[in-house]
Computed example of a mutant assay.
Amino acid sequence: MILADKISLLRKKSGWSQEDLAEQLNVSRQSISKWESAVSIPDLDKIIKLSQIFGVTTDYLLKDDQGEEDLVFIKSEGDSAMRKITLEEASTYMELVQKSSRRIAPAVSACIVSPIVLLYLLGLSQAPDAVLPHGAALGIGLIVLLVLITGAVATFITTGIPLEKYQFLEKEVFELEYGISGLVQEKKAKHEPTFIKGIVLGVILCIVSVIPLVTVSVLGYSQLTVLLCLDLLLIIVSAAVFLFIRVGMIHDSYQKLLQTGDYSIERKIISKKIGPVAGIYWCMVAAAYLLLSFLTMKWGRTWIIWPCAGVLFGAITVFLSQKNSKK
């Protein structure tokens, strides 16, 4: 569907005459008539204004491969004008995410490796010729664990505060100013190889991490050796998680600005609809789990409620998604 047909369609859906639309755009009725008959096309500023008036994206107006079946309104009657992201805001956000990923990734890794000193010292204290008492091993290990976790939490808080004002990118529908989409897509394309390498390497590390622990467990090595392999597992997993977060945060920032993937307009609309349902649903599941567990006292079996509830919730989400797509 070409732009001319879309203007006519949206105007009629809004119940406006050509004069009504012309008045809102501060143009003549003849201009509207020429646009709708494809004799001429509106300027860029008028296209942006049209997207705001009709509550659709400029992409929808400009892309001929999108027709009435692809129409998604990004605001309803009574809503305020759609938020627009400037080049400065987009650039500041992308730079902030890159800086934050350098701090959050190692902080999460620190949380994962925080128990390794505790596990190692406890293993030493239980050896037959141990010099370090069990109490001292426990105390030193807990101190190291708490220091690492405290530092990580402090990092999460200080890093998260500047990002709070950009949380609307995940939930609200917005529009990028002209030229920003191309800039973000270019950055995303450059980062794509790094993102893929980081994810692949992270997955490989997660798989490799369990090999030493499984090997020593099967061969019947000492408890200290098992604990050392467990420490090694935590270190390798922490490296994998570091990669996931480091490349993932940057990749997500591009998706949020472009409103693609998990942050598409359709997903945001569905999330708003399913949010209240999800809260009630999981409260009912938790209540059913506790009630059944206390009545039967078979806690080892009643946990099956959770995976079943997860599968059912997924089906509900798919149903609501399809219903929204049809609308």
Rank of each mutant, 00 (worst) to 15 (best):
K12W: 11
K12R: 14
Q18K: 12
L21Q: 05
A22S: 14
S28G: 11
S28R: 11
R29Y: 09
I32T: 07
E36T: 05
I41N: 14
I41H: 07
L44N: 11
I48W: 06
I48M: 07
K49R: 14
L50H: 10
T57Q: 01
D64A: 11
G67E: 01
E68I: 13
D70T: 02
L71A: 04
L71D: 11
F73C: 00
F73P: 06
T86W: 13
L87N: 07
E89D: 11
T92R: 11
Y93H: 08
Q98A: 14
K99C: 05
S101I: 07
R102W: 07
P106Q: 05
A107S: 05
A107L: 03
V108D: 01
I116G: 05
L118W: 10
Y120A: 15
G123M: 07
A127N: 13
A130Q: 06
L132S: 02
H134L: 14
A136Y: 10
A137N: 05
A137R: 03
I140M: 08
I140H: 09
G141P: 01
I143V: 14
I149A: 04
I149N: 02
G151V: 03
T155A: 11
T158Q: 14
I161L: 14
P162N: 09
L163M: 13
K165Y: 06
Y166W: 15
Y166T: 04
Y166N: 00
F168C: 03
E170T: 03
K171F: 14
E172C: 08
V173A: 15
G179L: 04
Q185N: 15
K188V: 03
A189Q: 08
K190N: 13
P193V: 02
T194A: 14
K197D: 02
G198P: 02
I199C: 02
V200R: 13
L201F: 13
V203W: 05
C206I: 03
V208K: 01
V210D: 07
I211A: 03
T215K: 13
L219D: 07
S222T: 14
L227D: 00
L233Q: 05
I236K: 00
L243D: 01
F244M: 10
Y254T: 06
Y254G: 06
L257F: 06
T260R: 12
T260C: 03
G261P: 08
S264A: 13
I265A: 05
I265W: 01
I265D: 09
E266H: 08
R267Q: 13
S271P: 01
K272T: 02
G275T: 03
P276G: 09
W282R: 01
C283M: 15
A287M: 11
A288G: 07
A288N: 08
L291K: 00
L292F: 12
L292E: 05
L292A: 15
F294R: 01
L295S: 11
M297N: 12
W299R: 02
G300E: 04
W303Q: 12
I304P: 01
I305Y: 08
I305D: 04
W306D: 09
P307G: 12
G310W: 03
V311S: 06
V311E: 04
G314N: 10
A315E: 12
I316T: 08
F319G: 05
Q322L: 15
K326V: 09
K326W: 00
